[in-house]
Amino acid sequence: MIELHERTRRISPTRLHEVLKRYDAKSLVDPFMGIPTHLNYLKRQGLAVHGGDVVEWFVRVGEGVVVNDFTILKDNEVAEIVEMLPGRIYATDMFKAWEGVFFSEEQCIYLGVWHDNVRNLRSDGQTGLAILGLWYVLCYWLQKAHYPDDMQDIPPSELAWNYIRQTEKWVAPNLLRNTCRQADVLTTINHQAADALFLAPPARNTFRTADARIWMWEAWWQGNPYFNIEHYYRDSLFGARSADENGYARAVASVLSSAQQYPVIVMQTTEQKMHEFEGLLRNARKNVEILAPHPYEVYLVGTS
């Protein structure tokens, strides 16, 4: 059974929105966006949002709930994702390597079918929504392995149907241009202008501690159960310098120094790690305000 992280990164978009309102920020760039549900919230509140990440499926989901303004998956389209379509040949053994380790035989077959079906979707928006919906299924299955008697046995196609249909509710336009890119932090920062830059930097050695659900879903999207996201991070600014504390600090400092065009920088961290970032931000910005509504949620806001 795979170990699932107890505590994952908590980003509260409502709180972030309250912080941004204080500084009258109408647009935001998040170069470490992760699963961009927070950007979706901010978009719905009328901000222009731009996200970036090195992991591809995050970006694909961003195309579904951040970039996409109108496209949803209708009932017949969801049906074409969740079940095997007659006349199509599927690589049902694509995820056989996970069988008996993480998932059952049936689940692995479905993962293969869904992979093929999602890859055949017509638009980026629909693909993103399907990836997000199916990710909830993956999480449900992994959780169920931990709580076999507490969680219902739901047929895979029904579970997938329910979750994919749910993603539709997050699709909304804000009449602004919103973007997501698969890129390293510096590329994202330099290619985009906005009122505020939101930084929730990955912890040191992230690739070693990454939640299994994250790398597993990237492996699913790539169609390769042995796929490892380690190289994504290794090749990034942080991956290359995260071996020691000083290297990590230098990486954060270089991000901050590249972000001079942003009037406001909001760094989210925890009370425990606040001291690591505060000094770096003070070096980069004249004024630093600390907003600490919760020990797990501390915002350092730097302005010129």
Binding site: T8, T14, R15, T37, C139
Partner: peptide, 24 residues
């Protein structure tokens, strides 16, 4: 305030307003 803010969140991340998930 935190409890009022997050009382409609769902464990799997499909709740609102923050779409927090699991132990978050």
């Amino acid at each position: 305030a935190d409890l009022v803010r997050w009382h409609a969140e769902a464990w799997d991340g499909t709740g609102y307003p923050d779409q927090l998930r699991w132990h978050g």
